[in-house]
């Protein structure tokens, strides 16, 4: 479904991603591990058209989406869920969700998606008229995920959903991702604070210094004491 060949990105003078090749199949949960600041977020952003200087090839369903504008990519069914949430602070929860369904392909299914999101996040629905800027960190994170689901995407690129959250929220997030995956969505996720996620993973990548240093199944990581200790802190 997603195939990345030799991707390179640059920010100002620095070379961030170096010849990154990744592939994600339909329906899979793929997890990217690795130290902070080594380009994991940049990879997700490049897929979604949020990085300016990129070089290489990104194929989505066989179509070349390299360098395409972000709104076109969202229309094709690829959505980015930001680590720092990027909500609309002076809008209500409901308005944020509705804007999540801005893209053309999401408009037709807005009602069904809203019902699905409501069943996944009952707590959000109780606060639908609250302004996003007044929510706590955990709730805002949930809203960011919910808004991402409203886009009717087939491929969700989720950036560190558990960062800075309490353990209870992390458990909730792992359950939600399980549910998303059960709906047939493909999930490409950067996260290393939620060990439960590893259990769901179909494939695991490790990124170091802008390149892929490891690729394998979950057991390759879980059975490798060194990797386990370094990246999962287990």
């Amino acid at each position: 479904m997603l195939k990345i060949n030799k991707l390179n990105t640059y920010y100002r003078e620095s070379h961030i991603l170096k010849d990154v090749s990744v592939s994600v199949d339909r329906g899979q949960v793929v997890i990217m591990l690795g130290p902070n600041g080594h380009g994991k977020s940049t990879l997700l952003k490049s897929i979604c058209g949020l990085v300016e200087k990129i070089d290489g090839q990104i194929l989505y369903d066989g179509q070349d989406i390299t360098g395409l504008a972000s709104d076109k990519i969202v229309n094709l069914g690829v959505t980015y869920i930001a680590e720092n949430r990027e909500l609309f602070p002076y809008m209500t929860v409901m308005e944020n969700l509705k804007l999540g369904a801005y893209s053309k392909n999401a408009r037709g299914n807005e009602k069904e998606n809203m019902a699905w999101v409501a069943s996944l996040f009952p707590k959000l629905m109780q606060r639908q008229n609250q302004l996003a800027s007044t929510m706590s960190g955990g709730e805002a994170k949930m809203l960011a995920i919910a808004r991402g689901l409203m886009s009717d995407a087939d491929l969700l690129c989720i950036d560190e959903p558990g960062l800075g959250l309490q353990p209870s929220y992390r458990v909730e997030i792992s359950q939600i991702i399980k549910e998303i995956s059960r709906q047939g969505k493909t999930v490409f996720i950067v996260e290393q604070n939620i060990p439960q996620l590893i259990e769901m993973a179909d494939k695991i990548y490790i990124m170091e210094e802008g390149g892929i240093s490891f690729e394998g199944g979950k057991y390759d990581v879980l059975n490798n004491e060194q990797l386990k200790e370094i990246f999962l802190g287990l």
């Binding site: 979604c48 949020l50 504008a69 972000s70 709104d71 990519i73 969202v74 229309n75 959505t79 980015y80 869920i81 930001a82 990027e86 909500l87 609309f88 602070p89 002076y90 809008m91 308005e95 509705k98 804007l99 999540g100 801005y102 893209s103 999401a106 808004r147 991402g148 886009s151």
Partner: peptide, 20 residues
Amino acid sequence: MAVQAVAQNPAGAQIVGIPK
């Protein structure tokens, strides 16, 4: 709504697929 979204958070607007 999209206009307001861009005013409040341009990056967020880009993420949800609003053509800036």
